[in-house]
Amino acid sequence: MRVLVAEDHRILARTIATGLRRQAMAVDVAGSGDAAERMCLVTDYDVLILDRDLPVMTGDELCRRLRAADGAPPILMLTAAGEITERVYGLTALGADDYLSKPFDFAELVARVRALSRRTAKAPPALLRHQDIGLDRAKRRVTVEGRTLELTPKEFSVLELLMTARGAPVPHDELVRTVWDEHLDPRTSAVRATVSRLRGKLGGAARIAADNGQGYRLCD
């Protein structure tokens, strides 16, 4: 899942981004409304977390502009104003998909982001299976031959993407775009190292094949 956080408070933006990355989401950050608009034009985000009080272009104006265009991501609006009238205005007049008042509980933010992504995406079934590998997306649990595996968030997301592909190869760029984010140095071995650890936990190299050096797929 790829998320854009449009928030001009640097500490809060960094805190949100770090927390979401720990949940295996790829996160980009924009500090102004115009920057967020440009990023939405070139990247397909699964969710936009949008602060209302942005510089240059307000979150309200950005929300209106994105809603008037095609292909806008689901928008979770953040604001310090928690009155009911403000929430109704954000959801109706502005066209936001969800609304969260500051301060908020981070677990609730994560739950709302996941709910928004499920609402609009062509989500695979909650339970995925490939041979003797089972993946429960709701419980975020993976089993092999009935045995539960302990996976890191990145390992889980890589496996989820591979299982969703149903044996088709997943290009390296798609893994980076979906599981990591723009800050990943393409020269690093992060993807290869994660896949290597995942292979070991699944039972060996024969579980995941390299697709001519361009990506990976689950073996039959």
Rank of each mutant, 00 (worst) to 15 (best):
P74Q: 09
S117C: 12
Y99R: 03
K102E: 14
L135W: 05
L94C: 07
V113G: 04
G95F: 14
R140V: 06
R67M: 13
I133K: 07
G71L: 11
P73W: 08
A68M: 05
T152N: 11
A107C: 01
G95Y: 13
R119A: 15
E86F: 09
G90F: 01
A80Q: 10
E150N: 14
R119L: 08
T85E: 05
G82W: 11
L66M: 09
R129P: 07
E83P: 07
T79Y: 01
Q131A: 13
V142D: 01
R141L: 01
G90L: 01
G71F: 13
K139I: 01
L76D: 05
K102G: 04
E108K: 07
L91W: 02
V144S: 05
D132L: 07
E150F: 07
D70T: 15
A96F: 14
Y99L: 02
L62D: 09
E61P: 03
E86Q: 02
R141T: 02
P73E: 06
P74W: 02
F104G: 14
P73N: 06
L62R: 05
V142I: 04
V88G: 00
L62H: 04
L62V: 15
G95K: 12
L94F: 14
A126Y: 02
D98I: 06
E108D: 03
E108L: 10
A107H: 03
P125K: 10
G134C: 13
